[in-house]
Design a protein around this nucleic acid. Structure first.
Lengths: 232, 232
DNA sequence: TCCATTTGTCGTCATAACGACGAGAAGTTA
DNA sequence: TAACTTCTCGTCGTTATGACGACAAATGGA
């Protein structure tokens, strides 16, 4: 290597795959791109580091707040993986560190900023469709959904899709919708109540939904499921 | 945001956590740093992108070959995660994309290049010890070991620690060493032979090891374990 | 040669987890 | 009040699991 070689630097972006369950379907949060490249297409919320010194986790939280109005402290946020194909952005070399966020079915606080452009799109409407999404965001969403599906098996991630207080039925609907698979309510009830620290009863019950009132639970301290709840 | 803002660029590094089982212990491949910062400490093999256009997966394979002489086509290599704390490198802002590699107990082809500095170090000798490793490489190794441990449960990753042909006992030793947990040989035998596509018998048997000869297997086409082999 | 030792493989048994399903509890709606 | 919905508990047969016995098939020493 010659003495004139210098360390190459590239632009770092942070992209967010924010998932939620609403209207009986799994949705991902997307924005309409207002600028080239891929102007007019749907894209994941995200952006470049604001300064050279910004932590990437902090950048993810900042983009989440700027583009969606969501507060990272109140939801599940984890790094998904990094995408660095040299041609993924036609303008320049961009390496993007992607994050997976899971949120309950909140009304999007669409106040100000770029947040107005953000909207929920059913995952099955964007997967396997070319020409709809910008960059390699279709692949990123597929990876995010895979990660979420598999983490439902071994972790308590499903509660991140729920409000702070929820019933076992609501939790079961999360599993059913994310997995696209029907689960027996009775067996599911037995399983989740059998895992130590998964669910904590609040003492309250639902009312007014028709049918027998359900016990209302809160998330417990457990993060992993022993035994796991496996798919078929 | 003012009009004078420009997209910040940072240096991208690629680091490798290469794991193997040898001498009844889990080892990680480390190099002695010859330059500041952290001169003289142990570090993961890795380096910066060679050019602004280099794919990060390609960079990982290149560093693997340069620093260890190993061929990426012949081993398991997957992205682990990306570390981007602004102060992790005192020289400048460096974001490092880390990879996890799993190799059988090969003699390191120490021919030429920087490879001579690479050597195997038992994982339990570096974890939980401050001042031994450069940068945040202790954390990275811990994450890599965690990933490997958990993937043994749900995937056929354990075969990546083995030679192309291996016995069930050798496979079991991989599980026991990586998990630091003894497994019943008979139950383990039943489990792994019960998973479709995990092991393919070669028709050959061992000899000369004392004790009854073992059937020799090859990896099968399966990549996930159904049902999983869970830890306690 | 014979026997102890080592290692691999198959089988047994009690327990735990699981899928399928019955049935009653406790509400709402017609 | 009757019909319906939803939640919860329980049963039953099947399967997976952990603990362990027993034998097979090699080696090595007396």
């Amino acid at each position: 290597m010659s003495t004139s070689w210098t360390i190459p630097t590239v632009a770092i972006a942070v992209d967010l795959a924010v998932l939620t369950v609403r209207a009986e379907r799994l949705h991902v949060l997307l924005v309409n791109r207002g600028v080239e490249p891929y102007r007019g297409r749907l894209a994941l919320p995200g952006g470049f580091l604001s300064t050279e010194d910004e932590d990437i986790d902090v950048a993810a939280e900042r983009e989440l707040a700027e583009e969606t109005g969501l507060d990272a402290a109140k939801l599940h946020l984890e790094q998904l993986r990094t995408y660095g194909a040299p041609t993924r952005d036609p303008r320049m070399r961009v390496v993007t560190v992607c994050y997976l966020a899971i949120v309950p079915n909140l009304p999007l606080p669409s106040a100000g900023g770029d947040a107005d452009r953000a909207r929920w799109v059913p995952v099955d409407r964007v997967l396997g469709r070319r020409g709809l999404l910008a960059f390699d965001h279709g692949q990123i969403i597929a990876d995010a959904v895979d990660r979420a599906r598999s983490k439902l098996e071994y972790t308590t991630l499903a509660t991140a899709f729920c409000d702070p207080e929820f019933t076992i039925s609501e939790l079961r609907r999360v599993y059913e919708i994310v997995w696209s698979e029907e689960l027996d309510p009775r067996n599911f009830h037995r399983k989740v109540t059998g895992v130590d620290g998964f669910l904590v009863p609040t003492g309250k019950r639902t009312s007014g939904n028709g049918g027998r009132p359900a016990v209302i639970y809160r998330r417990g301290p457990a993060t992993v499921l022993h035994p796991p709840i496996l798919r078929n």
